[in-house]
Design a protein around this nucleic acid. Structure first.
Lengths: 230, 230
DNA sequence: GTTCTGGTCACTGTCGACAGTCGACATCCA
DNA sequence: TGGATGTCGACTGTCGACAGTGACCAGAAC
């Protein structure tokens, strides 16, 4: 009987997941102060797991602690995104190269499944989530645990940013789904080829092209002659 | 009156610092299980700050949690160090370039002071600490907060590894102090020149040359025909 | 009206306690 | 004797409580 071992996530993990969703969806607004007691009572748990979850979320860059230790939902600025861009550019090609070398058939099939799911996604939010997951899979498949770990510290911020931009500038993301699928297919093909250098190069291009989303808010602000609200 | 605001570190921070020292010095051995209740009673605090400190230490890669949530002092392998090497190579040249561009006179003076201290250090352990601090300063001076943050997640592991190697292969580190000073002086000079590309290149060289410490244990093991104990 | 003062309130940091769980070890039965 | 079963102890995950601190607000003093 194929009984795989079941994992029993602790409360802190559940709280963390729940809060991630709340932040990514915009249910909790950027900059908003989120007191531990309130979260605890709203979620029906004590403060201990909430505190632990918040520490995790800080690691993921979704919340920050001010000088008094109070928790705020992160408010990403353009400079933050530039930082993230430069780090993605440093990390992801490295991982892509490794994945091309070491990736298993299993890995590539999971990636293919992700692309298929992206093709059939019915909402932008879903596309964004699957996009982040795709990169996540590559980082993991690389076998570079620390790089994957670092990526964990970036991906949620990327998701948060894209979510925010999508809510603000829907029109711009019209063709995103198709483009994402196309780019990911190209990537997967190179990864499967086993050519590390080519994989690095392709990933680099992919990240560079992703950069165009960064200036969105600044551009929109410039056009409408208002201050960018980040 | 120049009274700078005093920071009142919380217990968790103190515990974290104390535990870092214990791990880096070898007081706590690699692989050793460290139960929260014991740490708490030994340090005379409750488990809450200990738990928080352990989470921080995990982020710094000095401890790991097993499937049951029990804490162990990290046991670095050669593969771990290869990972760290590849990440340093991705992160530090980037930061060095930025520091060359944006570094302030103040920054460079702090770096110079660090080098001076390294010159006068009286123990290898001190040299190692100052070495890590030097790189820390560059990461901070770069203004790239996330890169600096990532480096925080590596530096202690680097220190731990070097400490371990130094305790095992003292003789090999004879000339380390002088070499470190020389290399750091070269780096500082390039940083001061403001030439980002040159700074990147010099840092790259520096990291590559650091790589030689990685194979130490494997080499020693091969020579004495025993299994490398990592 | 403005500045100082005191009180109030909302939070965080820390503590001690309890329950559930897992491994180790002893024990029982074939 | 060896494998299954039961018991014990150690630790983690979680909880509720308390104290200390800073922000905010109202009122007093000038």
């Amino acid at each position: 009987m194929p009984l795989s071992p079941l994992s029993r996530p602790n409360l802190a993990h559940i709280v963390r997941t729940r809060l991630s969703e709340a932040i990514l969806s915009g249910e909790l607004e950027p900059g908003q102060h989120v007191p531990e007691p309130e979260l605890a009572s709203r979620l029906g748990v004590s403060r201990a797991p909430v505190r632990e979850a918040l520490l995790e979320l800080e690691r993921h860059g979704l919340v920050t602690f001010d000088s008094r230790g109070r928790t705020h939902v992160v408010q990403l600025t353009l400079e933050d995104m530039e930082e993230i861009y430069s780090l993605r550019l440093a990390l992801e090609p490295l991982a892509a190269g490794l994945t091309a070398e070491r990736g298993t058939t299993q890995d590539f099939e999971t990636l293919a499944a992700n692309i298929a799911a992206t093709e059939q996604a019915t909402s932008l939010a879903e596309v964004t989530r699957l996009d982040a997951a795709f990169h996540d899979l590559i980082m993991r498949a690389s076998g570079h645990r620390r790089a994957a770990h670092f990526w964990e510290g970036l991906r949620y911020q990327v998701e948060a940013w894209l979510g925010l931009m999508q809510r603000r500038h829907q029109a711009v993301f019209q063709s995103t789904q198709a483009e994402t699928v196309k780019a990911h297919k190209r990537l997967l093909k190179v990864l499967r080829s086993g050519d590390a250098a080519a994989a690095e190069e392709e990933m680099k291009k992919h990240i560079v092209s992703w950069r165009r989303w960064l200036a969105l808010e600044a551009d929109a602000a410039a056009r409408s002659d208002r201050k960018p609200t980040l």
